[in-house]
């Protein structure tokens, strides 16, 4: 018997691919911004610029939560019917 999910996958075989690529691109974007923040905070902490450190830390946390939340939308691998 085929269910809704299965017929969707058959009708749009590229959907998983697109979702996956989108999520990975977003994640890479987040991580890049976080590296930028961290670099800035390290530089500024040396100058005792606490405000900057706090702001970037908050921003970084927000991005981290956003990344974890994105994982929710990771598509399930399409199960091939292996067994007969």
């Amino acid at each position: 018997m085929s269910d809704f999910r299965q017929s969707q996958n058959e009708a749009h075989p590229n959907k998983t691919n697109t979702l996956m690529t989108g999520i990975i691109f977003l994640l890479i974007l987040f991580v890049t911004i976080q590296i930028w923040f961290l670099f800035g905070a390290l530089n500024n902490a040396l100058q005792e610029n606490l405000n900057f450190a706090i702001t970037t830390a908050l921003g970084s946390l927000v991005f981290a939560f956003a990344s974890f939340w994105l994982l929710k939308y990771l598509p399930e691998p399409i199960k091939r019917k292996m067994k007969k």
Binding site: Q34, S60, L61
Partner: peptide, 12 residues
Amino acid sequence: SGALAVGNTAIV
């Protein structure tokens, strides 16, 4: 991403 956030918090 989580590790970077932790690192940034550690600085603060």
